[in-house]
């Protein structure tokens, strides 16, 4: 998906300057910025939930299948949906809803998606009663079930402890790698998200700036450094280097074991 001078806003009034950005399959992009910076407006425009004010939005093919995972807090806890029912919502794409019953293959796809996300034993449980980490697994099973090529995840690690956050982001990274998804993650937890991101897009409405690119490029940007501070930016860069080194070491160990 490519944004060419894309202008987002409401009622014909721009919120931010024109945005130029491209995301490809197998890429994970962290969408960061403070509250009210315009992140939500931008991704809602990408998903077709809001009309753009100007510019162009294009995809590699028409009707690119997309999926959106909202913040868990937006899903009403009094609705007695089982985890399995929620995952089955991923099957509803286009005119599929006109079929009155789900086929056996479709039921099996739901089971498969739950299993892939390590949530097979959660299927019969009430979604509202699951832990935050379990809920996120179920939501990602729904995403997998819907077979999108572009997915937007809104604050997938909100209200999670550090271990659960890391596990969730690893799961998301696996989706990107194993299924070729292009994934946009909206998050306030930049230090952890940036470890997995191929791109970062940073929004700052106050200074009317949008900075997009590889994480190191964005970290070097003066607007980004002014926002987060030099010390925090250095820490981000250092942790990315450590992460890269660890991944190389793990990859070499796996290679040695295989040979």
């Amino acid at each position: 998906m490519t944004c060419r001078d894309l202008v987002v806003g409401y009622g014909g009034k721009p919120l931010l300057p024109p945005i130029n950005f491209t995301i490809f399959h197998h890429q994970l992009c962290a969408v960061v910025g403070r509250n009210g910076a315009g992140k939500t407006t931008w991704f809602r425009t990408l998903l077709g939930l809001l009309p753009s004010v100007g510019g162009q939005l294009s995809t590699c093919r028409p009707d690119l299948p997309m999926a959106y995972i909202p913040q868990r807090s937006q899903l009403d806890p009094i609705v007695p949906l089982r985890a399995r029912d929620l995952v089955a919502q991923g099957l509803e794409r286009g005119r599929h809803y006109l079929r009155p019953l789900l086929s056996r293959d479709e039921q099996q796809r739901v089971s498969w998606a739950l299993q892939e996300m390590g949530a097979a034993d959660l299927g019969r449980m009430q979604f509202a009663q699951l832990s935050e980490g379990q809920k996120q697994r179920v939501l990602m099973a729904r995403l997998l079930c819907s077979q999108p090529e572009l997915a937007v995840l809104d604050e997938p690690t909100a209200a999670m402890d550090a271990v659960a956050e890391r596990e969730t982001l690893q799961l998301i990274d696996n989706l990107r790698r194993d299924y070729g998804l292009a994934i946009l993650i909206v998050s306030h937890h930049l230090p952890v998200v940036s470890l997995f991101a191929d791109q970062v897009i940073f929004f700052d409405r106050a200074s009317q700036n949008v900075v997009a690119g590889q994480p190191e490029t964005v970290f070097d940007d003066p607007v980004f450094r002014a926002h987060y501070g030099d010390e925090a930016t250095q820490a981000l860069r250092a942790s990315r280097e450590r992460e890269k080194t660890q991944r190389v070491e793990v990859h070499e160990q796996d290679h040695d074991h295989a040979s």
Binding site: Q74, Q89, E92
Partner: peptide
């Protein structure tokens, strides 16, 4: 309602998710 129940439930409780998936 029985025919369209899955779509009505999805739309009622996650309208954005449903719309993005083309409902």
């Amino acid at each position: 309602h029985l025919w369209l129940r899955r779509a009505l439930i999805f739309t009622s409780f996650d309208a954005d998710g449903a719309r993005v998936q083309g409902l």
